[in-house]
Design a protein around this nucleic acid. Structure first.
Lengths: 197, 197
DNA sequence: GAAAAAAAATGAAGTAGTTTAAGACTTTTA
DNA sequence: TAAAAGTCTTAAACTACTTCATTTTTTTTC
């Protein structure tokens, strides 16, 4: 039987780092939950305790917090082949500070807290998978948190375009501004300036 | 026989997340290399390929890059019971962009790339240890990279003092400025303002 | 496909943080 | 322990970015 496209995607993602037998693949898939989110709908909201970590098989979502003034700060855009969620809340079982909202109709595969633990018991190789996944994420976050502090807004925009050419055209300028960390007005000025260059 | 203080420290750190038998502890210790760095000496410099990941048993070091203008940007201060190094270079074997310099006479335990891999073969539980270690680091980096973008310099200073009261008094204002992401002059103004409040 | 809602562009006035320069204080080194 | 080197403070002029207000353009909704 042909595997579903979404299952094939997540298996490809995992087997980039570890090998799995057919049986292990089936076992893994059986621990996942399919989720669909319509554009503008929330996958999760601040105040809730995160029940799942997600892998995106289709669409685009934004992960953000609201500051005291109610302004959004986007920490990531998640598209196909990305992992997302709020790991802090997922691990500590404390209420999340994040919202995750679909910016396009999206499809995801979620793993619950219980199944995440079960996964490590049943297929210990997944400790290695997550070790490598987190290690790579850590490397890119370390880089980003330095850039956030050392580059100007214009440089951060150019860097974002270079690094995520496939994302930049799928999101609004307003959301991009909330990611870069500036006002939509200044984002507009930067974009028109950079395009004139 | 009494274990060395430095060995006890690293074993305590590891056994916070995983259990180890006496034999496993000895095996682990045997894979580590002791390193001492005098104040102002480099543990590593940009351009080198990182050979070790380090655990600090004594002292304080700063991890930083230099931008095009030659200004330092400090990404972390590492003190006792912290892990440090350049994971990107350690993993990819590409030359590092980082400098690590001791701000006090320091002592570390290093694990080489070869021994790091060997460790996973000999004691697979360490995949779990590093999975959890990286997961926790990731959570704090995600938080920091949001703060870098959404807080003012003054708020970042207050947050640093709150979070690392034991570090703030061990470093110079100049280095703190290079961490917060502002000039030493503006750091001086912030500190005198905050102290007046 | 018209009306409503949201996003983007533009400009003027304000604030957070930089630059440069000079003097006071502290630490390092011989 | 004196000299040198580095760190900290203060202030004035400057730049990156914000705020607020208005208009135009694009997207959504019925």
């Amino acid at each position: 039987m042909e595997p579903k496209h979404s299952h094939q995607l997540i298996i490809d993602n995992v087997t980039r780092f570890i090998d799995l037998t057919e049986l292990e693949k089936q076992k893994y898939i059986s621990l996942l939950t399919e989720v669909k989110v319509k554009k503008k709908a929330f996958l999760m909201q601040a105040g809730e305790v995160t029940k799942y970590e997600y892998f995106i098989t289709k669409g685009c979502l934004k992960v953000y917090t609201l500051d005291e003034e109610g302004s959004p700060h986007i920490s990531m855009f998640a598209v196909e082949d990305y992992w997302t969620g709020d790991m802090a809340s997922f691990m500590t079982k404390e209420p999340s500070h994040y919202f995750i909202k679909a910016t396009e109709d999206s499809e995801l595969l979620g793993i619950s807290r219980a199944n995440y633990e079960l996964l490590f018991q049943e297929i210990p190789k997944f400790e290695r998978f997550y070790r490598i996944l987190y290690q790579k994420s850590l490397i890119s976050y370390i880089r980003r948190s330095n850039q956030g502090i050392s580059l100007t807004a214009e440089e951060r925009y150019i860097e974002f375009k270079r690094k995520y050419p496939n994302i930049v055209n799928r999101i609004t300028q307003k959301d991009l501004a909330a990611y870069i960390g500036i006002t939509p007005e200044f984002m507009s000025k930067i974009i028109s300036k950079v395009n004139r260059m």
